[in-house]
């Protein structure tokens, strides 16, 4: 089977997927790990924003992305997809949410369906790193504050004015250079005319 056909079989995720699954240590072994991840994925689909340890968040995120992308790809009449949803969602009413709420929300998305933020951690502690995992398009207020594009912010006004000044000074320099070049050209032409007159 060549590469192109694999891409058709498995939907490509829009997040970085490490080649090896992460080993989340658990007393029950691999089954315990999966149980924990199922809990997390269920929580994410239910609450749309959760805070947890960073490594478990990253691992659960991959499964949640895969689940949503499968649901979008195959819809709710596809037996294997239904099985996957049934396995990953411990609360069965969330299966309805997945197909009736999340699939319409993410159908035309060109970004990943989930988002992970680093959460703050108390200084000088040895606690694990925390993360906030959320579904995009959730109803909560935004966690980040991206205002770089807001031209009315005072920083941007000052930067724009500085850029404008810089550009004006460059234009002036260029104009001076061009003026000098023209003067030179005019000078050489005049000399040439004089020389030709002398010859005649």
């Amino acid at each position: 089977m060549n590469q192109a056909e694999v891409a058709k079989l498995v939907s490509k995720l829009r997040i970085k997927v490490p080649p090896q699954p992460r080993k989340l240590r658990n007393i029950q072994g691999p089954q315990g790990r999966l149980d924990k991840l199922r809990k997390t994925v269920t929580g994410l689909i239910k609450h749309e924003r959760i805070e947890l340890n960073s490594n478990r968040a990253d691992e659960a995120r991959q499964y949640a992305e895969r689940l949503i992308s499968e649901a979008i790809r195959h819809g709710d009449c596809h037996k294997p997809t239904m099985d996957i949803a049934d396995y990953w969602l411990l609360e069965k009413e969330l299966v309805h949410k997945l197909f009736k709420v999340l699939v319409p929300r993410y159908e035309n998305f060109d970004k990943s369906y989930t988002r992970m933020h680093k959460a703050p951690r108390a200084m000088n502690t040895r606690n694990q790193e925390k993360a906030v995992l959320e579904l995009r398009g959730n109803p909560y207020p935004s966690l980040t504050n991206k205002q770089a594009s807001n031209r009315q912010l005072i920083q941007n006004i000052l930067l724009d004015a500085a850029k404008y000044d810089y550009r004006q000074s460059k234009y002036l320099e260029m104009a001076e250079k061009m003026g000098k070049a023209e003067d030179k050209e005019a000078g050489t032409k005049a000399e040439a005319v004089l020389e030709s007159n002398d010859k005649n």
Partner: peptide, 13 residues
């Protein structure tokens, strides 16, 4: 509101 900060900018200046 941080989307329309003109008045704050002026007050700040």
């Amino acid at each position: 509101s941080s989307t329309e900060p003109q008045a704050v900018n002026k007050a700040f200046w």
